[in-house]
Design a protein around this nucleic acid. Structure first.
Lengths: 250, 250
DNA sequence: CGTATCTTTGATGTGCTTCAACTTGCGTGG
DNA sequence: CCACGCAAGTTGAAGCACATCAAAGATACG
């Protein structure tokens, strides 16, 4: 959703100076997430420039990429896996701002410091771009800036959708809406299926939707019992899309 | 907060082809909101270019500038007054996404269609830029694009703050946090005072904070009774900032 | 001043949370 | 292979923060 950079002590050290996108073959040009990422804005020469400053990063589940308040020294593009983007209140209450999936860009706003903590939900690989170098490329590449700007505008719209959800929807609407939204996102990266994988746990969903874990669980069981969906290991199968859409009531 | 353009039937027709910012004198260069708006990114020649395509717009209280879903044909800069930016759910539930104040830019994301409805809360004047022309200027002025991009990033951070508020804060925290945030915003436009004007009604605050009008009213009376603030006509006076900050608990 | 609108206040209701088990899945080692 | 332990998820009962319903002040304004 947002934030970029290197984190003082937490961030794993990149090992190889090349684009993580399937780099073992033809580097960025062959990257399987290129067309769904900001990289789609680049010509082949620019892509080469980008590749020169990219480094692959791998994260194990539960490993943090960076922490809220860390000085942001890099930006990232997710090439595999998923991350949880969250913020903590001093007393421990948590809000999950979103989940970064394949093709998503972290550090979109090029902030001084990260505003969220990013943690891997599953084995995850990213393309890391040192911020200074990336900013240089952006300055030299107006349509990349244009593309980032568009992306930021899109994020803003998504943020508004989520504010509506948090402020004005019921628990059941929140859960239905979340699942349908996830399905749409998966469809955007070529995984259009009635079965929606849930790489995050119930607590993560709860913290994303402004609910408790128990309420999320109850709503899922209710929708399951009513045959609107089927809870399967690691995800849900959306059996009655029409009904779910009616409940989500966008 | 976001969205720009002209609305089919609702938008008032601009009458004069010149910058509304204090244009009666020296046009944009003399505009009193220039330094707090995106216009601050421009050199004096660019400012002249901008001025050529700006038109003043005036709105009476309750008048809409544009509606959610309207085709966006322009962007705006607020020079006077305040607007409410809201979204409606099909069943009438409303979420106020934010309030646009002096210096704020509407249509930041240059969307096809507006994602919110913008309505004046008080007598309001804006600088209107036809979107096509504005986009042209942006394309010719990289650091204006840069500036818009930064602004978008800032909005994204604010949106995250608000998600945290909506999802994880109590009613009292929401109200205290809102008032302190407003105060900070006023300070940013040179109105640093313990007295915070509230151009919006209780219902607007409620719809912004994900509460009901009654709860907002009760929280305000409670904070008043406890001498953390004083309710005055048209606003509040923040008597005990330390206490309010402790309640807001950022 | 009278009427419409907004705000406050009180009484009551309820959706979600909290608290507390219980269940399930799964890796680990005896 | 199964006993064990731990983490994640589910389920139930009780409580509470906020919503809803209702009505009485304020304020605004023609």
């Amino acid at each position: 959703m947002q934030s970029s950079g290197d984190s003082a002590g937490v961030e794993p050290i990149p090992v190889e100076p090349a684009c993580a996108h399937d780099r073992s073959e033809r580097g960025c040009a062959a990257c399987k997430v290129r067309l769904v990422s900001v990289c789609a804005a680049l010509t082949s020469e620019e892509l080469a420039g980008l590749e020169a400053l990219s480094q692959p990063v791998h994260l194990d589940p539960r490993q943090a990429l960076f922490q809220q308040e860390d000085r942001a020294g890099a930006v990232y593009n997710v090439t595999e896996g998923a991350l949880r983007l969250s913020r903590l209140l001093p007393d421990g209450r948590r809000q999950v701002m979103g989940f970064a999936m394949v093709g998503d860009f972290l550090g979109l706003a090029l902030p001084e410091r990260f505003t969220v903590t990013a943690e891997a939900l599953s084995p995850t690989t990213l393309c890391r771009f040192e911020k200074r170098a990336f900013a240089g490329l952006v300055a030299r590449t107006p349509h990349l800036l244009q593309r980032l700007y568009e992306r930021a505008g899109h994020e803003l719209t998504l943020a508004q959708d989520h504010m509506m959800l948090l402020g004005r929807r019921t628990a059941e609407e929140k859960v239905a809406s979340f699942l349908l939204g996830l399905r749409t996102r998966y469809a955007g990266i070529g995984r259009d299926s009635i079965t929606v994988e849930l790489p995050m746990g119930r607590q993560d969903m709860a913290d994303h939707l402004g609910l408790t874990i128990e309420t999320v669980s109850r709503m899922l069981t209710r929708l399951d019992r009513e045959k609107a969906l089927l809870i399967v290991p690691g995800g849900v199968r959306l059996l009655d899309l029409a009904r779910l859409e009616r409940i989500a009531a966008s």
